[in-house]
Design a protein around this nucleic acid. Structure first.
Length: 643
DNA sequence: GTTTCGGTTCTTTTT
DNA sequence: GAACCGAAAC
């Protein structure tokens, strides 16, 4: 492997840097992934065993991509290297050592939907479910924010609801109850994974020492999007050998609302005074005209590292700026544009349409369908959070973990004539554990049901007992098929319009589960794999030659020949709520615009409708997004579609 | 007493 | 859609 040949000067310096803390400031499109992959290869080449390396990434997709590429680059392979998201790593450590904090190794992970359910239950139990009191999803978001910023729930409640008629103490009461319920269920939500991992490393020196010793090298991708918990975890883990490499770009920090603090990357040199700093500024991705727009955009956020993206590509043409009448005209314009691009040689898979929020794309989806243009939407609903997926997973969950109240409730709730009351009564009667192997419990359950619900249950029961009977575990996917045949096929057919698609999902799930050695291992992953679908979207759009539709957030780390941004209008981008409520809202929204621009290799087209129908039937005029109008207009090519 | 159904309202971003 | 509420149906 010839590093000199594979890398430019900047990258080579970072890849071959000696041990010790390293900060790589990698602007968009400058070969950041490449640098990380080759650094891993370099370390292994120098004799570091792969299992002494920890690679922390922001998404599962990024982790997989890097490990795949490293595998190719290194002849001896990277088997044993720990790679994944912070949540994955925390999960792995906590399964092993969580007992020190009072958790069993088979603790359940609550996904967002589960967490919301528990919060809702707490609100109800405290009889706070009035019109004035915040809804469960609002409070769940607030609790999450508190965890990720290490703030007190009470402070956030005062800040958020102080001048409304909401009592902060009541919010705290809900929080306490929610926390207690989580403990009762022996479960953790996403945030607990991080919080508890940090606690474990802080309070249990033996655990900390073990991992400090293990991880001789720690590499962190997208460091600008780490929050305080994650930064502390990294500092602790790397605290022994101090071989810490962090890569990031403060200008692509777009997760502030989730507690990410780009000051982590700004202050890295202060926390590690001996850190070497490398800058990657040579951009290989985009044509100069696109980079000019990106550079002009940076100027809007003066308090950040000012850096310039240096182009390497030939001059091409300026990005288009299309001012359109309304969403309908925009949708038709995008369809026409795609046709035009296809005629000039682009494939559909080279094209992405990006937007701030999922609902911005609704109109366009209809128009694309009407025009027969294949497209793939990276949807807002995570694969494993969809109802039908959670329904069939509940069968496996209750089998593996008899104390999983949420799974029990979900499964029984599918039966005709069974509602919350019946479920609660049974659960109490069972003493908080349902063991499908227990004949008496099964008899009680069957006895409590009548009519159609009972008939349905009698068909489900053999699926459970058969599973426990033969203890297969190996062919994990089988149980989904059996449950489908016995009950869910019919249920789905009666309850879902898009029955076909959902059953297809379940077959897919069954295959996926079958790839795991045990169902336990599958379950441990399920909650964290919420994005399985989104991460295969890229491959799907490639394979099916489809236009890719995605939020800007989910486009992070990706690139396309052609990027079309829709709704670059005030009121849509920036999102008004962020500007209003978040401290650095406008700056972060500007970074979002920057991320959009820097995804484009050849063509960038910015669409900005002038009008939008309001709910009450009126019409709202929308100026051009401030992020577009603050940029020198001669950098754009104005287009006026002729209608 | 429970469940189910129908009408209404709102929709930022996600591990 | 999906979350919520109130009314109808079982």
């Amino acid at each position: 492997m010839d590093l000199r040949q594979a890398l430019n000067e900047e990258q080579y310096a970072a890849v071959t840097a000696p041990d010790g803390p390293l900060l790589v400031l990698a602007a968009a499109g400058t070969g950041k992934t490449r640098t990380l992959v080759y650094r891993m290869a370099h370390l292994v080449g120098r004799g570091v065993a792969p299992d002494r390396i920890l690679l922390l990434t922001f998404t599962n997709r990024a982790s997989r991509e890097m490990l795949d590429r490293a595998q190719t680059a290194i002849h001896s392979g990277v088997a044993g290297l720990w790679g994944g998201t912070f949540h994955h790593m925390a999960n792995r450590i906590l399964r092993r050592h969580g007992r020190a904090l009072g958790y069993e190794s088979d603790f359940a992970i609550l996904d967002r939907d589960d967490a919301r359910t528990l919060v809702g239950e707490s609100i109800r139990a405290l009889e706070l479910n009035t019109k004035e009191f915040p809804r469960k999803d609002v409070l769940q978001a607030l609790f999450s924010r508190a965890a990720n910023t290490e703030a007190a729930v009470e402070d956030l409640a005062v800040e958020r609801f102080g001048n409304h008629a909401v009592d902060p103490d009541a919010v705290v009461a809900v929080y306490n109850r929610y926390t207690r319920r989580k403990r009762e269920l022996g479960s953790m939500d996403f945030d607990d994974l991080l919080v508890n991992c940090l606690r474990l490393l802080t309070e249990h020196a033996s655990v900390l020492d073990r991992y400090r010793e293990k991880f001789m090298h720690v590499l962190v991708d997208e460091y600008q999007d780490t929050n305080t918990l994650q930064a502390q975890i990294v500092d602790l883990l790397a605290g022994g050998y101090r071989n810490l490499l962090v890569v990031g770009d403060d200008f692509q920090s777009i997760y502030g609302w989730r507690g990410a603090d780009f000051r982590n990357i700004m202050s890295f040199p202060e926390r590690y005074p001996d850190a070497r700093v490398f800058k990657l500024e040579t951009n290989y991705r985009s044509v100069p005209e696109v980079l000019e727009v990106a550079n002009a955009c940076i100027a809007g956020n003066p308090e950040q590292f000012q850096k310039a993206l240096r182009p390497t590509r030939e001059a091409y043409q300026r990005p288009r700026l299309a001012r359109l009448r309304d969403g309908g005209e925009q949708a038709r314009y995008v369809v026409d544009l795609i046709g035009e691009l296809e005629r000039s040689g682009y494939r559909r898979r080279d094209i992405a349409v990006l937007y701030r929020a999922h609902f911005h794309a609704l109109e366009l989806q209809l128009e694309l369908t009407r025009a027969g243009i294949r497209h793939i939407v990276t949807s807002g609903v995570r694969f494993f959070e969809q109802r039908h997926i959670k329904d069939v997973c509940s069968v496996v969950k209750i089998l593996m973990n008899p104390g999983d109240e949420l799974a029990f409730a979900r499964l029984l709730g599918l039966l005709k004539g069974v509602g919350p009351k019946t479920i609660a009564k049974l659960w109490t009667e069972f003493g908080g554990r349902f063991n499908a192997f227990d004949d008496k419990q099964r008899a009680t359950l069957a006895g409590a049901l009548r009519g159609e619900g009972r008939r349905q249950w009698m068909r489900i029961e053999p699926v459970l007992t058969a599973y426990l009977g033969d203890k297969t575990g190996r062919d994990g996917g089988e149980i989904f098929a059996r449950f489908g045949n016995a009950f869910y096929d019919e249920y789905a057919n009666n309850n879902f319009e898009d029955y076909e698609r959902r059953m297809e999902d379940i077959r897919e799930l069954s295959l996926h589960a079958g790839r795991y050695e045990t169902l336990d291992a599958f379950l441990a992953d399920v909650a964290l794999l919420t994005n399985v679908d989104a991460e295969t979207d890229v491959q799907r759009s490639q394979a099916e030659d489809a236009v890719h539709l995605s939020t800007i957030h989910q486009a992070k780390g990706l690139e396309w020949s052609v990027v079309i941004l829709i709704w670059a209008s005030e009121g849509m981008l920036p999102a008004p709520r962020t500007v209003r409520e978040a401290e650095d809202g406008e700056a972060e929204e500007r970074r979002l615009f920057y991320v959009t621009v820097t995804r484009a290799k050849d063509e960038l087209c910015i669409c900005a409708p002038e009008m939008r129908r309001t709910r009450d039937g009126g019409v709202m005029y929308m100026p051009l997004s401030r992020f577009v109008s603050e940029i020198p207009q001669h950098l754009f090519r104005r287009v006026r579609p002729g209608f």
